[in-house]
Simulated assay, not measured.
Amino acid sequence: MTERTRELPMTADQDRFTAETERFRRELLAHCYRMAGSAQDAEDLVQETYLRAWRSYAGFEGRASIRSWLYKIATNVCLTAAQPRRIRVLPSGLSEHYDGPDRPPSHVGPGEVSWLEPLPDRWVADDPAATAVARESLRLALVASLQHLPARQRAIVILRDVLAFSAAETAEVLGTTTAAVKSGLQRARARLDEREPEREQLLEPADPRARALLEGYIAAFERSDPALLEQVLRTDATLEATPFREWYAGRVRCIHVLGTYVLGRPGDWRMSSTTANGQPAAAVYHRDDSGGYHPHGIVVLAPTSTGISRVVEFHDPALVVLFGPPPGSPDEAFE
Rank of each mutant, 00 (worst) to 15 (best):
R191Y: 03
V124P: 00
P226R: 05
P326N: 02
L149E: 06
E200K: 05
H296I: 01
D161S: 09
P150Y: 10
V262I: 11
S137W: 07
R23M: 07
L119P: 10
V173S: 11
D121M: 00
E240K: 06
A141R: 15
R139G: 11
A219M: 04
H315F: 01
V77I: 13
I298Y: 03
G307W: 13
V299K: 01
P91K: 11
V320D: 05
I66N: 09
S305I: 09
V77N: 12
Y217I: 01
T75M: 12
D121V: 00
R310D: 15
Y293H: 12
V257G: 03
P243F: 10
T242H: 03
A179I: 05
I156F: 10
D127G: 00
E61Y: 08
V157K: 12
T49E: 07
M271C: 05
H315A: 02
L233R: 14
L29Y: 13
M10K: 13
E112Y: 02
R199H: 05
N76E: 14
I298D: 06
A36H: 04
L185M: 10
R4Y: 08
F244W: 15
R253Y: 02
E136S: 09
L258E: 14
D288V: 07
C78N: 04
P327N: 04
Y293K: 07
G250C: 03
E215N: 12
D121I: 00
Q201C: 03
V300G: 06
L301C: 07
G37M: 07
P326F: 01
A318L: 11
P280E: 04
L51I: 10
Q147P: 10
E194K: 09
H97K: 04
D225I: 04
V232K: 08
A219V: 03
A171H: 02
R287F: 02
A144Y: 10
S329P: 00
V321C: 02
E172F: 12
E332H: 12
L29R: 15
P243S: 04
I218H: 02
D121R: 00
T80Q: 15
